[in-house]
Amino acid sequence: MKKRWYDYLWIVELTYMALGFFNILFAWLGMVFFCVPLIISLVWGTKGYCNRYCGRGQLFGLLGGRFGLSRKKDIPKWMKSKWFRYGFLIFFFIMFFQMLWNTYLVFAGVQNLRQAVTLLWTFKLPWHWAYHGTFFSPGVAQFAFGFYSVMLTSTTLGMMTMVLFKPRSWCVYCPMGTMTQLICKAKSGGR
């Protein structure tokens, strides 16, 4: 099948994750990965981002498919159930707002900047080497650390399910995919 420009967006995803190791402020670029799918679903009522432009999904497809890093087994039933998908979306939302709250506290001067990336909402990884100061408030950097934590956590989870199940298993419970599908459902009149 003929390759199109958007079939190479996995390079963008890989570059984004790599940049976070050098300067955490690059994490802000990840806002694009959050805003574009929402805009596409809200304006056009499609999951065009998931269907074509998701670099993360492409990366999993490549690593699990061509590179053979996936067992290619069926995902467990509970993992594709609506309960789990919506539950994970709510959980992700709560953790995201908690991250925003921590950012606010740093902006307000109540809390000091924490130069760490939190993996899987639990493990605090020292990440000070990727922080070289900022012209703005330390809150800007705190958001970057928090946002990169979200991205690294979801990539790690995606990698784990890629290995265990089918390459793009992450797409089944991806909170952004669930949310955009809900938007599309609402826009199409409940289906």
């Binding site: 998931c50 797409c171 995919g177």
Partner: peptide, 11 residues
């Protein structure tokens, strides 16, 4: 009912 509309099939 269980489709997540990821579009992997269409690709």
């Amino acid at each position: 009912d269980d489709c997540v509309a990821c579009g992997c099939c269409a690709r």
